[in-house]
Simulated assay, not measured.
Amino acid sequence: MRYRVRHLTEYLYGAPVTLCYNMAHLLPRDTHNQRCLSRRIAVTPTPVYQTEGVDYFGNPTFYFSVQEPHKKLAIDVECYFEIEQNDLSNQLTLHDLSCAELRALIQASQSPELRMVKEYTLDSVHIHRSKELGEYARRCFTDDTPVLQACMDFTHQIFEEFTFDPAATSVSTPPEQVLKDKRGVCQDFAHLAIACIRSLGLPARYMSGYLETLPPPGQEKLVGADASHAWFAVFIPDLGWVEFDPTNDLMPNEQHIVTAWGRDYADVTPLQGVIFDGGDSQALNVSVDVQRV
C-alpha cells in the first residue's frame, strides 16, 4: 500500500516573534515494513538555518531558525510511503513466551539488546510506574499468560472501558488521572498502557505517527480530517517490537504510519523550541491528510 501524507502546522501569534529556534519530529522513518519514497519540508518564513539529524532513538529530526519578525509560522511536510502488510495472524498463536519469562529475561539482561531494552521499563517524563497502575493491568498480565495475548487483551480492555474525549485531558495529564476519569485521546491511552505495563516490569515504548481514517459508506473524506496518532509497542525477543493500538482495539498494520518512537510523548513532540516576543497569546492549527495513492 502506498500513501501520501501532508502535515501542515501553523502558529499564529498575537505580536511579532522576532526570533525562534525549533526542532521537529515530522519527518518519516523507515521500519521493517515501511519505506519512505520521498519527502519535502517547507518552513515559512524562510529559515536562515536548517539542518536534518537523528536523535538518540534513531528518529529523523529537523532543526531550523527563523530570524525575521513574523506573526505566523507554517511548517508544511509532505511524504510518500510504501507500507507492506504484516502477517499478524500467526504471532498470537505461535509465540507463547509468558509474561513471567519475559520479565526474567529483562531483569537478567544477558545481551546488549536486552540491556538497551531495559530503559523502556523505567520512568520517563510523562510516565511514572505505580502499584495502582500495575494492579489495573495485572488481570491480563498473569505470570503464565503469553505476552502477546496479554497485550491484546489489555488493548481490548482499554478500548472497552475508556471513552474517547478530546476535551478531557491535556498533554501533561498523568496516566493515573486518565485511569480515574476513564476518558482521553490516543496519546492518553498509549501513555496509560505503557505506564501499566512498565509497572509490571515489562518493556513498552511510545509510538507516534499517522492513521488512515476512512469515512462512513457513501460519504467523501474531508480534507484535513486526519490527525496525528499514538499507540504503544512491547518488546518480544525473536520478534522485536510488536505494536498495539488501544484507541482502535487492534494490532497496527498497513494503515498505521510511523514517524517516531521513544519513552513517551516528550521524546517525540512534533514541534518544540524557543520563541522571543510574540505577545501573550498564540493559536495553533494542525491539518493532516493521509491519502492512498
Results as ranks from 00 to 15, higher is better:
99 C>G: 06
245 D>T: 12
193 A>V: 06
194 I>Q: 02
46 T>Q: 15
67 Q>W: 02
156 H>C: 13
12 L>Q: 07
223 V>T: 13
175 P>G: 11
80 Y>V: 11
178 V>S: 09
137 A>W: 04
53 G>K: 04
103 R>D: 04
272 Q>F: 08
256 H>I: 11
37 L>C: 06
99 C>S: 08
33 N>K: 01
189 F>S: 10
249 D>V: 08
249 D>P: 07
26 L>Y: 00
81 F>S: 06
2 R>L: 10
187 Q>P: 13
156 H>V: 08
55 D>F: 03
72 K>H: 05
251 M>Y: 01
12 L>H: 06
163 T>A: 03
152 M>R: 14
199 S>K: 02
163 T>M: 03
36 C>Y: 03
174 P>E: 13
133 L>K: 03
181 D>L: 14
212 E>V: 12
165 D>L: 00
274 V>D: 02
207 M>F: 02
106 I>W: 11
178 V>K: 11
76 D>L: 08
149 Q>M: 12
91 Q>W: 12
243 E>P: 07
83 I>E: 08
293 V>A: 07
223 V>M: 14
34 Q>L: 06
92 L>G: 07
77 V>K: 04
78 E>D: 11
194 I>E: 03
1 M>C: 10
99 C>L: 01
229 H>Q: 13
127 I>K: 06
245 D>L: 05
151 C>P: 10
89 S>P: 01
202 L>T: 11
148 L>V: 00
189 F>N: 07
217 P>M: 13
237 P>A: 07
126 H>L: 15
126 H>C: 14
207 M>E: 12
134 G>S: 09
286 V>N: 05
265 Y>T: 08
117 V>N: 06
7 H>A: 02
17 V>H: 09
39 R>C: 10
215 P>E: 07
278 G>H: 03
7 H>F: 07
195 A>P: 09
8 L>W: 06
276 F>P: 00
74 A>L: 11
127 I>T: 07
2 R>I: 14
169 T>A: 05
160 E>W: 06
80 Y>Q: 04
225 A>G: 15
245 D>V: 10
107 Q>D: 12
74 A>T: 15
202 L>K: 05
172 S>K: 15
138 R>K: 12
13 Y>T: 06
31 T>I: 04
161 E>Y: 05
10 E>L: 05
130 S>A: 09
60 P>D: 01
274 V>R: 00
14 G>K: 03
148 L>F: 05
71 K>A: 02
200 L>Q: 00
55 D>E: 01
170 S>K: 15
115 R>Q: 15
26 L>C: 07
233 A>Y: 12
23 M>I: 15
263 R>N: 11
250 L>K: 13
167 A>D: 13
210 Y>F: 14
80 Y>C: 04
134 G>R: 03
36 C>N: 13
103 R>P: 01
142 T>P: 01
266 A>I: 12
280 D>S: 06
146 P>F: 00
246 P>M: 01
281 S>Y: 03
196 C>R: 04
115 R>L: 14
176 E>N: 15
11 Y>W: 10
49 Y>M: 10
244 F>C: 05
165 D>Y: 03
153 D>N: 15
98 S>Y: 05
285 N>Y: 14
248 N>T: 15
97 L>G: 00
68 E>P: 02
178 V>N: 09
244 F>Y: 10
112 P>A: 12
119 E>V: 15
267 D>C: 04
66 V>P: 12
112 P>T: 09
261 W>F: 15
130 S>Q: 06
144 D>Q: 08
201 G>E: 04
237 P>I: 04
243 E>M: 12
252 P>I: 02
47 P>G: 10
281 S>Q: 08
